[in-house]
Write a protein that binds this DNA or RNA. Sequence first.
DNA 1: CTCCTGACCGAGC
DNA 2: CGCTCGGCCAGGA
Length: 142
Amino acid sequence: MPRSDEAAAFFHAVYSAVQEIPYGKVTSYAHIAKLVGTPQRPRQVGVCLKHLLEDPEARFNNDNVPWQRVINSKGIISPRSQPSGSQNQAAALEAEGVTVSRGALGELTVDFKDFGWFPPILPSEAAEGLQPHDDDEGEQSP
DNA sequence: CTCCTGACCGAGC
DNA sequence: CGCTCGGCCAGGA
């Protein structure tokens, strides 16, 4: 449980944003943070997702929030995501058709093509010849 | 109450 | 290229 209502609102916003990630796609903690209007708190996003595992009966839990689709900005599944070393997360993503490759150090890298939602950072190589399609959310209303 | 840690990120060196 | 350093702030000790 968050300490303040503002924090609760933040939690809610994060969970909602994560639920917007399409099946078979991934995005970064930083991007979620930006979406909820607090681009400087990617860490708190991680905190939110961690709490999902603790309350299976809560309004937002690991069953209705696809937290597995959230990885870090390097395109790697956070090693701390799970006790056993994020294997479960990788498996869940692969089950969705996401391509996950294992590095020499056990790092689990998600293929760039699966950053279909709002691509965070373009690796210089992959950036060449790659055209991120327009992302029209349609939330602007001045 | 204070202190420390942490599913992170980006800029600097 | 890689490592360090600040920033952010919730939560547990």
